[in-house]
Design a protein around this nucleic acid. Structure first.
Lengths: 94, 94
DNA sequence: GTAACGTATCAGCCCATGGTGACATCAGTC
DNA sequence: GACTGATGTCACCATGGGCTGATACGTTAC
């Protein structure tokens, strides 16, 4: 969750959803500096959301399963909330 | 996204997924102080993730649709990533 | 009416995070 | 070997955000 809290990191994830990209592309697309992107990509990697593809240059690639897991978790909470909202029972206050 | 980045707020959302609760319950469950919870709940309300139910006491309730929207957005990114990963084409570097 | 409770706001402190530039290392080219 | 570019790390600073306690206001109970 924290990994996705930063707007730039969310932008990175969105860009990587479309295609794997190397830092040179990300610099172009986001306008952020290389070192800053390096920091953010490290965090996204540590969070398990992206991985690297060594190529001519180092490409970064989204890990769909990790993102799907976050989505499923939130979706599950939403489903649970829908079910319990129907029961309409409230826990009494002390 | 930012709204869910804080562990306490994520805990609140998880608790509210199970049932709507008033602050007195949240104080008990989380151990956080009333004023702190009030701050966090304000942020969650501003983010559209929870709403209030005036009752004997004020209850807070999760908005499943809002949470579902976040989940769907992330899920969509994951799906896109899966599709593009199969194409295996890489944007060339300059 | 008074006291207690529920709730939100305010102001302040302190730590975490985001961004930056310098620098180091590695790989490729000449 | 010298140079260049790609990549990541380090140290620092500014800002943002989380938490706290005091306070204000409205409601409820006696």
């Amino acid at each position: 969750m924290k990994a996705l809290a930063d707007p730039l990191r969310m932008q990175i994830v969105t860009l990587l959803a479309a295609e794997s990209l190397c830092v040179c592309h990300l610099v172009e697309e986001t306008g952020a500096k290389q070192t800053n992107l390096s920091n953010h990509l490290r965090l996204l990697r540590q969070a398990g959301l992206v991985e690297t593809e060594p190529w001519r240059f180092l490409y970064y690639k989204l890990r769909p399963a990790a993102l799907e897991a976050v989505a499923a978790h939130l979706g599950g909470l939403a489903d649970t909330a829908r079910t319990t909202a129907e029961s309409a029972r409230k826990r009494p206050c002390p």
